[in-house]
Design a protein around this nucleic acid. Structure first.
Lengths: 337, 337
DNA sequence: ACGGACTGTGGGAGCGCTCCCAGGGGGCTG
DNA sequence: CAGCCCCCTGGGAGCGCTCCCACAGTCCGT
């Protein structure tokens, strides 16, 4: 059906009347080729419609020009799509500049996650981008041990040694709380993210920091653990209202949880922002579509993706060292506060 | 840093005291291996922590066990994320069953799209999944011509020859309109999708069909072309209200456009559903979060992705023929109608 | 005038794997 | 007991490419 098989470097060499090596040099942009030879090779390539076989190249160079992006499937659902879409856009954009391919791996469960290390060892990718790492995750360490450069989205803890790109979680949270305090709110509750992730702990820390700065006390009864889901936001809001009916603001560690909180507040007849101000974290599309529109801490998700990819490429292509980057966040004020 | 290099099939063979071929047979599950030899090989593999190099294998088998999913970047934005997230989940799930890798390619513009054919010719993937094909798209044809199996999400037109998986667009649209008619609506407008895509035309056709069935006339003035975006929905709704202020229902060919329509209706003081009923298409997360929650035609996006992957694998692995599949849709009634 | 450096070139080897084929044993048949 | 088949086995070849190295030619400087 395909007629003749694909031309190889040998075919091109024969056609151009040169050796394989010269063709290879032209393809790889070496300047140790005479203008004449180069022209003949380029002509032959064009005539034959030749495209180098990247698998063969990969075998000898032991580089694949592909990186893996690993995403836990459970977290690609539940309204977290915009986050991953933006991240992918950032990663993909940076990779496109260097013709690096993106291999997307959705991991369903812990078993698959363990398998992953092995599968990645089949040398299909030059490096790995890892999202949603939990504090006691073994995978990042395993990957680095196998000699596979790894960049995390978010660190495992404050002492993270591997490369990572993170948003300024504590700073962003503190900014949100400072703003609420400045607007006269005095009983500012928080719905935290999962506390087995640094992002959860850091945003909680920001809530505390801002209180401390202002000489106020962060009342422990005003902090309720959520899990980054909408349903978690509902539950946490309900507990908070029981425990501290006098609260006048809630800082939720994610937009999704803020949406849950809004729903529960409405159900209990609290007006937003009149009775209770609500602030989220992320500034996803969601935030613009809630009623009322959500004040939130914007994190530069696409930029996080782009930076992760750039760091990884810098390591795989230029042998750069590990790098840790924290990107600034920004408070976006809407009508919920 | 990595210490010793990765073990190869030769290392394993030596360790197990067998030949390379025997190791290869064990790995590939051939049954022409004695129980004894198999056991020794498996032990050696475990001890050495050996993982076959899939690049080397790919070179000789000329299979890569990877498929590409190509998504236009412009359409991965703007609230269309849930669609792609679901599609990717479906694809990824089906691929995981056969250990096939997913290469995600976001295409920014027409130039990149043209380049794609070449890049794909570097033989990094065994097949291609294509999303959002326009009617006069040349890419699908080019890919098939290169001998690369291709499966489309949605057909280019009613006479599509390539493999595709589609939702029942005209049927779903017709069901929506029938429902509106049954509820006593008489002036049912429609906001169409892009008409250079079959999905846009088919949903429009469904709107017409349902009218014809009912012996009603589909008034041309009640159809306005949108482009699947929220902003497009706003504009179309505005034109419709000018042209046909007496309309009492709108069928939008996407949830996103329905969201735009809702906003414009609210702005103009029309009550939904009292004055105007609104129905969308897709049943994305959006639909549950609008005010009022959106009646919509659910399309099984994840199932579309899964089916696409299965068809492609069936072609690349079993040499199956092209296949066209249309999956049923379902009307989900909420409060906007 | 001659050695040396430097440019351009191409063949050999080998990346790690699979597949072809030749071959050695054991069990069965006649 | 010879002959045959069938099961299992392993070495050679080669997938398409890059890299090492050897080599021819040119241009210097002394």
């Amino acid at each position: 059906m395909t007629g003749n098989r694909q031309p190889t470097i040998k075919t091109v060499a024969a056609r151009a009347g040169v050796g394989r090596t010269t063709v290879s040099r032209v393809i790889n942009g070496s300047d140790l080729v005479s203008a004449d030879a180069r022209a003949r090779v380029l002509a032959a390539i064009k005539e034959l419609n030749y495209v180098p076989n990247s698998v063969a190249r990969g075998l000898v160079t032991s580089r694949t020009d592909a990186v893996a992006l690993v995403i836990p499937e459970s977290e690609s659902r539940l309204g977290a799509e915009p986050f991953f879409a933006a991240l992918i856009r950032g990663v993909s954009g940076a990779l496109a500049e260097t013709r690096t391919q993106l291999q997307l791996t959705l991991v369903r469960d812990q078993f698959e996650r363990d398998q992953l290390a092995a599968s990645v060892a089949t040398r299909r990718v030059d490096g790995v981008l890892l999202v949603s790492v939990h504090t006691h995750d073994r995978l990042p360490g395993m990957l680095e041990e196998m000699g596979l450069p790894t960049v995390l989205a978010g660190r495992r803890d404050a002492g993270e040694q591997l490369s990572y790109v993170d948003s300024d979680n504590s700073g962003g949270a503190a900014a949100a709380v400072r703003y609420l305090l400045a607007r006269g709110r005095r009983r500012i509750a928080t719905i935290t993210g999962s506390l087995d992730m640094d992002v959860g702990r850091s945003r909680l820390a920001g809530w505390r920091d801002a209180h401390r700065e202002a000489g106020a006390r962060a009342d422990g009864a005003l902090a309720e653990t959520g899990d980054f889901t909408e349903e978690g936001g509902v539950r946490a809001m309900r507990s908070l209202l029981e425990r501290a009916p006098d609260l006048d603001a809630v800082f939720a560690a994610s937009d999704l949880m803020a949406v849950g909180a809004l729903a529960e507040l409405r159900r209990q007849g609290r007006r937003v922002p009149d009775d209770v101000a609500v602030v989220g974290f992320e500034d996803s599309v969601l935030a613009r579509h809630t009623a009322p529109p959500l004040t939130t801490v914007r994190q530069p998700v696409e930029e996080v993706g782009r930076t992760m990819a750039r760091i990884l490429l810098d390591i795989t292509q230029n042998g750069a060292d590990r790098r840790q980057v924290t990107l600034p966040t920004e408070l976006v004020v809407r009508e919920s506060s």
